[in-house]
């Protein structure tokens, strides 16, 4: 049986490697490995030429982390700390709306979760420190907030609504790694089902009427806990007829 093909939105970014300084289509390998480790096959979707035709070949999709979403997309003025990526916004919002219409299994990570909310009528907080008065969603206490080492990511608790899809998958409590300064304010047509208990920042959203539509504000791809990737890949496999749904109590079974 072939592996489900999972599209992953890529950065188009000026990047330095070796002696090269080039504009590149790129994505950290942590994302790619998370999909491969959970049984999928990753391809990277570049933002350069907005169109949704590529979705026909995919079994599922991950909207990856990255820069801020332009607040014009939910009718707000830009905050001084907001640093947008207009090319990715245009391409990814178009893809996201089509993905939700097609009910393609989707996982949003960090910026990707925020895109889910904005694409479906929601809005974001543009700069969390203004709202909650601390930077624990960007860096661990006492570390440089711009440190790129994963160990310096802000670590905090998340509590999850019992009975939600995320609750069934992740349990009622976990500790996560964060690196963001924006956050979901209004989740639009999605349901917020997970929060940071210290400041009520939304950490998980899901679409109860979708096959699989979940967004997480943290970075599971940089941890050993890949359950949300495994759930995406499984949903993609079932939807494309590559695997059979497990029969769960009370849940409908789709062969």
């Amino acid at each position: 049986m072939r592996r489900p093909l999972i599209g992953m939105t890529a950065y188009a970014q000026q990047v330095h490697y070796g002696n090269n300084d080039v504009m590149a289509g790129m994505l950290p390998m942590t994302y790619v490995r998370a999909v491969h480790a959970t049984g999928g096959r990753a391809v990277l979707i570049t933002p350069d030429d907005p169109d949704i035709d590529v979705l026909e070949s995919l079994d599922g999709i991950v909207f990856s982390g990255g820069g801020d979403i332009d607040p014009a997309n939910w009718g707000a003025e830009r905050h001084p700390e907001t640093d947008i990526d207009a090319a990715r916004d245009a391409s990814e919002l178009m893809l996201m709306r089509a993905v939700l219409d097609l009910d393609l299994p989707v996982l949003g990570v960090c910026r990707g979760m925020q895109l889910m909310a904005v694409a479906d009528g929601g809005s974001l907080h543009q700069h969390l420190p203004d709202l909650i008065g601390h930077e624990r969603h960007q860096a661990a206490a006492g570390t440089d907030p711009l440190a790129a080492d994963a160990s310096a990511y802000g670590r905090h608790d998340v509590v999850i609504e019992p009975g939600s899809r995320a609750g069934d998958l992740l349990g009622g409590h976990l500790v996560v790694n964060s690196f963001h300064h924006q956050a979901v304010d209004d989740p639009g047509k999605f349901t917020a089902v997970g929060w940071c208990p210290d400041d009520r920042v939304v950490e998980v959203i899901e679409g109860p009427n979708h096959t699989f539509a979940m967004g997480v504000q943290w970075h599971p791809e940089r941890t050993a806990d890949l359950r949300v990737f495994a759930a995406l890949v499984e949903a993609a496999a079932i939807r494309s007829g590559l695997a059979e749904a497990k029969v769960e109590t009370g849940a409908e079974s789709a062969a």
Binding site: V15, Y17, M26, L27, P28, M29, T46, A147, A148
Partner: peptide, 17 residues
């Protein structure tokens, strides 16, 4: 290993644009 923004030498899949 690619470097951009605040990130340094992260193993990255990339292709020149």
């Amino acid at each position: 290993p690619a470097t951009w923004g605040v990130w340094h030498d992260l193993p990255t899949a990339l292709i020149p644009n």
